[in-house]
Amino acid sequence: MKKWPTLAAVAAVLVTLVVLPFVLRNFALLTIARVAALGLLAASTALLTGTAGLPTLGQVAPYAVGAYTAGHLAHAGAVGLVQILVAAAAAAVFALLTGLAVVRTRGTVCLMVTLAVGELTAIAADQWKSVTGGTDGMARVPAVRAFWGGEPMLKGVPLYVYAVGTALVVLVATWLMLRTRAGALVRGCRDNEERMRASGHRVGLILLLTHVWAGAVAGVGGALLIAVQRYVSPADVGFEVSALTLLAVVIGGAASLWGAVAGAGAVVAVRDNLAPAGQAPLLLGLLFVAAVYVLPRGLAGINRRRDA
């Protein structure tokens, strides 16, 4: 009985996604392509915050690693596929290193450690000029070709297909993985860490692997950002983006990948389209407050931890 609305929703979303390029104009398609990049960042945040119970403000860090890596590859003439794979790998390695620290913490401390990781990365993006272009960012990234021999993608339709397609592949892969025993183990660590330990599971390792996977997802998001926006600066990977991502996750439901992506879409829609010029922060702030009061289930994943 419960399956019907779900299937209907999935079908409706898929049909809409296929129809959109025929209906929408360039700019709207580009906006959705940007949402795909931010959506992967939100999904990776949801994966850690909701599914693994590691609330994070620092997923912009692997996102930044992915974006700058893809940017350099684009300058070197690599195709989109290579950019995505290498960006994912670089972000995964980065997440492995930072994860060694992050997975030791829980609750508010985890939030603060990840905040420190995110801020340190943003500072590095600011300071390490030879690699990142400093405050001015990495500009003039050449248009990306998806595959060898493809056309450079400049307009809405190809970028939409590229970004939304890639995001779907990554999200479905993550979603399928979470439905296997591995996913059950991750949720087990969140729900009852002591019992998991008692039954001989290596909680630290499970969480570390989840952290690495989430890092890779965020890294792909960074690579998509480069393809769509063809520009990245420290402001794209700063505290504000972390906060928006967290808001997307809160709205969408911390334990739901798809909810997080929808939340990212809602946040971008509010920021770029609904709010009168300059009023976006006010509207987002109120949305944040309302989300905490009205959607307690949105925080369900977080609250299952015994941090009350």
Partner: peptide, 9 residues
């Protein structure tokens, strides 16, 4: 509802 809800609010 815990620290996190408070932090988010």
């Amino acid at each position: 509802r815990g620290h996190l809800a408070q932090a988010l609010l």
